[in-house]
């Protein structure tokens, strides 16, 4: 079993962090995994993206041609990565920043106003976590429990408050799906 996930948005939207949360969730669950940043000469600004592969068997190729799922936090990220989802895959779109006109029919598109929800919670920078919550139920190899554990490792010790905010955001994302 394998989850191949693309995460994309503006620099500063916490795309790399989102990837790390998934990666550490995989570590905690003793899965095979790769966290692959797109890297370039520009350190700041522009589009940021990374990919995470989680697998319960050895990962050979870590080049993602088509992903099982993606989270796109803005319109340019949507335009770039919507075609990169394999048929039957899942695409979570931050609809606060990406209004879609034409959409693919062969994938599940979850449009969630993540930035608006994040603002409601009182922290605009956690739209990434809201989207993660929306994606989580469809992932094969990680669940909320594993994410919580990873989050605890990444931020818990140093910034317990941030941990709570993030988990709150993830829950809001999950609730949105249930609604």
């Amino acid at each position: 079993m394998m989850d191949r996930v693309i995460l994309a948005g503006f620099g500063g939207q916490g795309v790399m962090f989102l990837g790390k949360v998934l990666a550490y969730a995989g570590m905690g669950a003793d899965l095979e995994l790769c966290w692959i940043p797109s890297y370039g000469p520009e350190m700041r600004g522009g589009t940021a993206n990374c990919s995470v592969i989680l697998s319960d068997e050895e990962i050979y190729s870590h080049v993602i041609d088509y992903a099982d799922a993606a989270i796109v936090l803005n319109k340019p990220a949507y335009d770039k990565f919507a075609p990169k989802i394999k048929p039957g895959g899942v695409l979570v779109v931050n609809s606060s920043l990406a209004k879609l006109d034409k959409v693919r029919e062969d994938i599940t598109i979850i449009q969630i106003p993540a930035t608006d929800i994040a603002n409601e919670i009182g922290n605009s920078s956690i739209a990434n976590m809201v989207c993660l919550g929306a994606l989580l139920p469809t992932m094969k190899l990680v669940d909320l429990q594993k994410i919580e554990k990873a989050m605890n490792e990444l931020t818990g010790k140093k910034r317990p408050q941030l941990l709570e905010t993030n988990l709150n955001a993830i829950n809001r994302g999950m609730e949105f799906i249930q609604e």
Partner: peptide
Amino acid sequence: DGFLGQTMEP
């Protein structure tokens, strides 16, 4: 190469 260099793996 940079792809191996930038990728995180356990």
